[in-house]
Design a protein around this nucleic acid. Structure first.
Lengths: 227, 227
DNA sequence: TAGATTGTTAATCGATTAACAATC
DNA sequence: TAGATTGTTAATCGATTAACAATC
């Protein structure tokens, strides 16, 4: 259909979601001085099956050597490039309560192409504070900051009630990628990506499985139950 | 195959992962005084299509009324029960750096059946501090705490290097559900559930899509690019 | 009854897996 | 060459979607 092969090259969402995990495993290996790795070894380090890993990597290109494996540095670089981590992405965090505060200090944000360049909060008591070396600015500055600093990714760490309003302003200011920590659904126009992290949702999913284990143990007490 | 229908009733993982979102939407509706909702309305509030919502709910039972919709309170209760939130789950948080600190104070953890009953840290400077009304205890207390308080869910918010060790001790102490915030893969025996939340992974997935949007805009400059 | 909306079916779509030919 | 491991194929599995009969 499309002539341009790069335009066609659609990497499946499930694969994209695993690339950061592969990259993390490769970084670990590199730090341990390991220069070459098989799909079997890398898959184990990333917590997947080797067939899935090879299938995933095949979407990026052919960076392995049959009979040998993958060169750690090369593969790490190719995944980084595919994920867009060879560029620099300016990030703004909106809402600096406990969670926003922790995010601003989170080392995983600073590394790998992300730069937290702006912190914004509504509360006059928080505005002016320095967190992780960055001054917290008032919400009024949002549009100016987005333009001047060229914010690519907005992190929303406000209460749910304010999240949609903040999101609307970020989008109006040209931000097309949103990471939402507020426990609510955000509606955005086409072309804007939202990813949601809801800490209590994860706990609830665990509770579901925990409950099933408790029920199963009660139903079939074949082994002794851990006290 | 199995005689017991409850044992057979396998709710798909994808459905379980959405139940907390439905529950959140229902709680919002209830707070706004809305007592009845159609699948179309609830689906919009939860950010999914109505067909998917109805399919998901059909796995729990038949709690709607044809031609009318769902009673908000009833459905919220049934989902809560299915998720195991009508019980009380004692939670321990290990590692009280910035993130662990934020988690201990996170209101989403306190509500809905979860009780943060224990905080543990390795650092003598942190041990003894009170966070969200709970005293931080030394790591040596882990096994005692797990038994005495009956910890059901362990939250790991330590650096990656310590995470597997902490996980092993939690599992040995009888904890079968782990929420891992450390950026590493944990290996656990069969019967133990691990869910992982990696904040930087989410950013990386956003960066991938952001990069594609930038490339697409460059390739086909049909509309003006937001400056 | 007429209108509305659920619960379910059947078709489609996408992801996973095992197996193996290709090839280092 | 012999041994090892990739990249790909084809089969399976599970999730999504649209459509509609059931039914309030």
């Amino acid at each position: 259909m499309t002539a341009d092969p790069a335009a066609r090259r659609g990497i499946p969402d499930a694969t994209v979601a695993r690339l950061p995990e592969y990259l993390r495993a490769l970084t670990d290996l590199a730090e341990r001085g390991i220069t070459s790795v098989s799909s079997e070894e890398l898959a184990t380090a990333a917590g997947v099956r080797s067939a899935k890993l090879r299938k995933d990597l095949s979407h990026l290109g052919s960076y392995g050597v049959r009979g040998v494996g993958y060169e750690v540095d090369l593969l790490a670089y190719e995944i980084s490039r595919e994920l867009g981590l060879t560029q620099d992405w300016p990030v703004a965090i909106v809402g600096l309560g406990n969670l926003g505060h922790a995010l601003a200090n989170y080392s995983g944000f600073v590394t790998r192409g992300f730069r937290v360049v702006a912190l914004l909060d509504h509360d006059p008591d928080i505005v002016g504070q320095h967190i992780a070396g960055v001054a917290v600015r008032p919400m009024d500055d949002l549009e100016r900051v987005a333009e001047v600093d060229g914010i690519a990714i907005g992190v929303i760490a406000t209460p749910a009630a304010s999240a949609q309003g903040v999101c609307d302003r970020l989008v109006a200011a040209g931000v097309r990628s949103i990471l939402n920590f507020a426990p609510c659904v955000l509606s955005v126009p086409h072309g804007v990506d939202v990813r949601k992290v809801d800490l209590s949702m994860e706990l609830q999913i665990l509770a579901f499985h925990e409950q099933r284990k408790a029920l199963a143990a009660r139903r079939t007490p074949l082994r002794e139950v851990v006290r």
